[in-house]
Design a protein around this nucleic acid. Structure first.
Length: 317
DNA sequence: TGCTGTTTAAAGTTCC
DNA sequence: GGAACTTTAAACAGCA
């Protein structure tokens, strides 16, 4: 494995797996779905490390898209000509990274075939479901007078008109707790919800994640619409995560039962596992080793802790 | 022709 | 130490 150079911070390899990078890109789009080329673009825009050896990592990324059930291929509509399909996140893949490490998932997301005829059980059903959701998002945004660019020229900034805060939304990935040397932790999300300016935290971000291109930090400084009333203690949303009130087709399946796993859970539609899985205990700091293992030795400021998964569903009807 | 998508294989890394 | 997961490489087919 090639290691990023140490002389420059910005070209360090980000502590994210291709899965999380892809999820970030998808979540950054208003429709929560992107063509492959836009996923490439998102990653290269934000992580200079990935502006080199593009053939290598793009091949890996395509492999991940095809191989992992958490990504769903959505065919283009006739009015969306272009190459390739759109890619979306499976609605229930939100807690894949519940251990706080975006470098490695604790459990793999697997689509379960259920007998529930009300739930879309096949990937094609999920794709159709997501396509409908994308339409609804656009309709809702259009109703509020929000202009959306063409799909091919998506605004890849983090300030999206949608209020949906998926765990993979880049603002959520950035807005996580930082474990300070000595065990002191502070929550960027708490600061944000408390109305604190982001400046101090952002400077921390710039130090902690130097691999992230500076413009993305600037992007993060853009006003993030996040009503503090939407979040309870621990930064968890009060509003339930729902997908049009429909049961969701799949849940993340641990390969091995974990202590946190509830027996028989796989048989449930589990509409809000992403929230439930982010219990306060799961928000406790985890080893920073995971997040920095592939980069040069971590500095104290590079220690990462678990994300604050602030989920908020977009209001669509 | 180049991009996209799928599949297989192998090696490396991390977790339990 | 084994299992699970990630990364990388490669081959191949389909499509715009």
């Amino acid at each position: 494995m090639p290691r990023p150079g140490r002389n420059t911070y910005s070209d360090q390899k980000p502590p994210y797996s291709y899965i999380s990078l892809t999820a970030m890109a998808i979540q950054s789009s208003p429709e929560k779905m992107l063509p492959l080329s836009e996923i490439y673009k998102f990653i290269m825009d934000r992580f200079p490390y990935y502006r080199e050896n593009t053939q290598r990592w793009q091949n890996s990324l395509r492999h991940n898209l095809s191989f992992n059930d958490c990504f769903i291929k959505i065919p283009r509509r006739p009015d969306q000509p272009g190459k390739g399909s759109f890619w979306a996140l499976h609605p229930n893949c939100g807690d894949m990274f519940e251990n706080g490490s975006f470098l490695r998932r604790r459990k793999r997301f697997k689509v379960m075939m259920t007998s529930d005829h009300l739930a879309p059980t096949k990937p094609t059903d999920a794709a159709h479901y997501l396509q409908q959701q994308a339409k609804l998002r656009l309709s809702a945004l259009a109703a509020t007078g929000t202009h959306l660019p063409q799909m091919s020229t998506y605004n890849l900034g983090v300030s999206q008109p949608s209020t949906f805060k998926h765990p993979f939304a880049i603002e959520n990935i950035i807005a996580r707790e930082y474990k300070m040397p000595g065990g002191l932790a502070f929550s960027t999300m708490q600061s944000m919800s408390a109305g604190y300016p982001l400046h101090n935290q952002l400077s921390t971000v710039g130090t902690a994640w130097p691999h992230m291109y500076s413009t993305s930090v600037i992007d993060t400084a853009a006003p993030i619409s996040m009503a503090s009333s939407d979040y309870s203690a621990y930064g968890l949303p009060i509003k339930p995560l729902c997908h049009g009130g429909q049961p969701l087709p799949a849940i993340p399946v641990p390969i091995k039962p974990t202590p946190a796993a509830v027996p028989g859970l796989s048989a449930l539609p589990a509409p809000i596992p992403a929230i439930l899985s982010n219990s306060p205990s799961s928000l406790s700091p985890t080893s920073p080793q995971t997040a920095t293992s592939q980069s040069s030795p971590a500095t104290p400021s590079e220690t990462l802790t678990s994300p604050t998964s602030a989920l908020q569903s977009v209001a669509v009807h």
